[in-house]
Design a protein around this nucleic acid. Structure first.
Lengths: 229, 229, 229, 229
DNA sequence: CATGAATGAGACTTCATTCAT
DNA sequence: AATGAATGAAGTCTCATTCAT
C-alpha cells in the first residue's frame, strides 16, 4: 500500500511499527505475514531484519512499549487528581477510557496477542498488566473503606469495570457521532451507577426515549474483542 | 494431549469439534494447525477431511452452532421471565453471564475469530449477533420508557454491558472460589447499579472492607481480551 | 536429474538417502540444499519431510548407519581371521581399504561432515569412531608386544595408517586401471613395510621403473581427508 | 570472538585473512558467513568489500597464497638437501610434515575446499597441486630406479604417503606431548618402513610395550575432517 | 473411515552483495 | 575505509489439502 519511497534509517523502523500495529490489529499476529508487512512499508521482506530481531521480537517490543505508555499515562492521571478515593477512581477510569479511545489498536493487540508471546516474553508484559490492575483494585478498596463504594469483591469489580471500559475499543471510530468526552462521561456513569442510574451526579439527560440514537453499529465484534478499527 | 485412540465412527466428528474448540480458544484460529488438531483426536491429518470440509468450514460450523445455542438460550430465558421490562432485562443479563460461564471457550471463539471468517461465512454469523444485541437494546429502551432505567444511549449502554458481562470468560474457572450464582449476582448488581452501589435491590453484603477477597489471579491470558491495558 | 516417477512409500526414503549421500559427497552438507535433493528424488521439497525430520537429522541418520555398518564389517573381518596378531592386523587393514573402496562416499561424509553435526548428534558418532580406532590401536600394541611390529607410538601409528588407507577414497573410481584386490595388496604393503620395501612377504613386482602407470589423477580432494571412521 | 576494534587501514585486510582461515577451517567455506567474518574482525559486513572482491574471491586468494608458499617451501627443502634420491625423498617428506604441522588450517582448507572453488578458480590451484604431487612421484621413481625403493606404483604410493602425512593436521595441537621433530621422525619411519619396521635407519626405540604412550585423543574430529585445531 | 505420501504455496529467516553517506 | 540500510535470491521448514490404497 503506502509506499514510502526514500524512507531511510530511523523512519523505516517507525513505519514498521506503525504498519505492524495496523496489520496485527486487523488480522491477528499469527495471520499477519512479514511479506505483507514489508509491502506496507515499501521494502523487501528481508530488509525488515535490519530493524527487528524476529517476528516474535517485534510483537514483544510493541507490547512492551504500549504497556509502559499505559502505565505512565495512568500514573500521570492519578498524580494530577485530588488525593481522595473517588477523585482518584474517576481519574483512573477516565484516563483508561481516553487512552483506549486514542490507541485502540495497541490496546487490542496487548489484550489479545498475549497468547502469541513466548513464555519468556509474556512474563514481563503480564507483570505490567498486573501492576495496572492492582492499582484499580486498590482504589476500589479504598473507596469501599471510605464508605463511598459498595463492592462485594474488589477484584471481580475491577475486572468487570476494565472489561466494560475496554469494550469501547471494539466500536469506537474517531469522527463518529460521539466525541471522546461524551463517551468518557457515559462510561463513567455506567461504571459508577450502572444502568439503573441511581447515579452520583452530573448525569447526562436521558435521550433514550427518542430512539436508540445509534452510534455506528458494531460491524464486527462488539464486545470483547474483535474488531478493529 | 488426550489421545483418543481407536476413536471410530461418529464419535470422531464430535471429538474433532471439541478438540478444535479447545485449540482455537487456546491459540487462536490462525495459529491452530490441523496436524495438532488431528493429533489431539488421535488420527492422521488427512483423516480430518472425512469429517470436515475445510479448516475454514470447521470454524464456521463451530460459530454457527454456538450462535444458535446462544440465541435459543436467550429466548428461553426471556420466555420464562415475567413480561415486564426489568424482569426481562434481569433475565437477559443473568442468562448471558451464565451462558458465558458455562461455555466460555465457544464464546471466546465467537467473539474473536470473526475476523478469521471469510466474508461469505461472516455474514450469517454477524446477523445472529446483531439479533442478540438488538434484543438487549430493545429491553434497555423499554426500561427507559417505563422510567425504570436511565440510559443516555441505549446502544452504547448495551455494548458496555455486554463487554462487562462477557469479561467473565477471561478469568472464570469452574471450581474456583465463587460459584456461578454468586458471580451472576455480583455482575447483575454492577450492571444495574455500578460500583457506587445506589442499587435497586437484593445487594450482596459488602465484604470489601475485609480485603479484596481475591479470585484466582488471571493466570495466563486473560483472554478475550480483557482488560489490560 | 534421475526422476523416479511413481516412487511410493519406502522407495522414496531410500532414494532420498542415496541422493543425499551423492550430493553431500559432491558439495558438502552445508552447500547441499533441500530443493536440489528433492529434485534429485523427483518430489517437492516439502515432501522430504515425510521421510526426514530435518536436514540435520538426515545427516545424523546417514552417519549413524554408516558407522554401524563399518563397525560390523570390521568385527566380521576380525572374526573370520586367525586369532594371532599379524593376521588380525592384516584383516583389519584389508577390510578397511575394501570398505572404503566400496562406500567411499559415505566414508567421506562420515569424515568431513562431523563438524556439521550438532554437538548432541556428534557425540554418538564420535563414540563409534573411537571404538573403531581403539581396535586398531589394540592390534598394533599386540603386534608390538609379540615382537612382530615396531611402533614407537601405537596411537600415532594408528592415525597415520588410517589416514593413509582412507586416502584411497579420494582418487579411487570403480572400473579404473587397478582392481580392488590390487589396491588392497599395495596398501597393505605400504602400511606394513613402507616404501623402502623391507617387506614381510608377498610383495608385488616393482613396476615403477616402467613409468608411473597412472591411475586417474585425483580430481578433487587429494590427500586431505584422512581417516574415516 | 576477538573483536579488534578500531582496526584500520592495511591491518584490516590481514585480520580478515586470518579470521577467514580460522572460520573456514572450523566450519567449512559454505557454512561460514560474512556476517560472522566481519564480526570477528570487528567491522560491518559491508566493509569487508573494501578488502575482498567476493566471498569466492577471498577463498581463491587464500588458497593461492597457500599453494605458493607450500611449493616454495618444498623447493627450498629440496635445494638444501644432498642431490641423491633418498636424501631428496627424506627432505620432501620431512618438510611436508613440518609445513603441515605449522600451517594446518591453511592445509586443511586447501585440501577440502577445492570443491567450493568455481571451475575457473580451481584450475590454477589444481595445477599447483599437481606440480607438488609430481615432484614426489618423480622422487619415488628415482629411488626405485636406483634400487633403493620398492614401489609397485609410484602414483599410488605418492598418494598414500601424502594422505598419511597430511593426516597429522587432524590431530596435532601445538604444545602437545610430542614436539614437531619427533612427529616428523616417526612419520618418516612409517613412510619408509611401515609398521613392520624393517626400516632403514635411525629408528626410535620401541616404546609400545609400555602401553600406547598416547598423544591426546583426538577430541573432536580426528580424521579427515572435521575439526580444526 | 483411516492412512501415508504427495503437493504447492507460502512462512520466517539468512545471506552475499551494493551503495549513498 | 567504514557504516547502515537496502536488495533479491534462496534456504529450511510448515501447512492445508488431496488421493490412491
Amino acid at each position: 500500500m503506502a509506499r514510502i519511497t526514500g524512507s531511510n534509517g530511523g523512519r523505516t523502523a517507525e513505519a514498521i511499527r506503525r504498519a505492524a500495529i495496523r496489520l496485527i490489529h486487523r488480522q491477528g499476529f499469527a495471520a499477519m505475514n512479514l511479506r505483507e508487512l514489508a509491502a506496507e512499508v515499501g521494502i523487501q521482506p528481508g530488509s525488515l531484519y535490519n530493524h527487528i530481531e524476529t517476528k516474535q521480537g517485534l510483537l514483544f517490543e510493541l507490547m512492551r512499549e504500549h504497556m509502559q505508555d499505559l502505565l505512565s499515562a495512568m500514573e500521570a492521571a492519578l498524580a494530577a487528581a485530588p488525593d481522595e478515593p473517588m477523585a482518584q477512581l474517576r481519574a483512573f477510569l477516565a484516563q483508561h477510557v481516553l487512552y483506549h479511545l486514542e490507541r485502540k489498536q495497541e490496546v487490542y493487540i496487548a489484550n489479545f496477542e498475549l497468547r502469541a508471546l513466548e513464555p519468556a516474553n509474556a512474563e514481563p508484559i503480564l507483570a505490567m498488566r498486573r501492576e495496572y490492575e492492582d492499582r484499580l483494585i486498590g482504589l476500589l478498596e479504598a473507596g469501599a473503606r471510605a464508605g463511598e463504594l459498595q463492592v462485594a469483591d474488589a477484584r471481580i469489580a475491577a475486572y468487570a469495570l476494565l472489561a466494560m471500559l475496554t469494550g469501547v475499543c471494539t466500536w469506537y471510530r474517531p469522527g463518529g457521532r460521539l466525541g471522546p468526552e461524551e463517551i468518557v462521561a457515559q462510561h463513567l456513569e455506567l461504571a459508577l451507577s450502572g444502568v439503573s442510574g441511581a447515579g452520583l451526579g452530573q448525569r447526562a439527560p436521558d435521550i433514550s426515549a427518542g430512539g436508540s440514537a445509534p452510534i455506528e453499529r458494531m460491524r464486527s465484534i462488539p464486545a470483547g474483542g474483535r474488531t478493529p478499527g
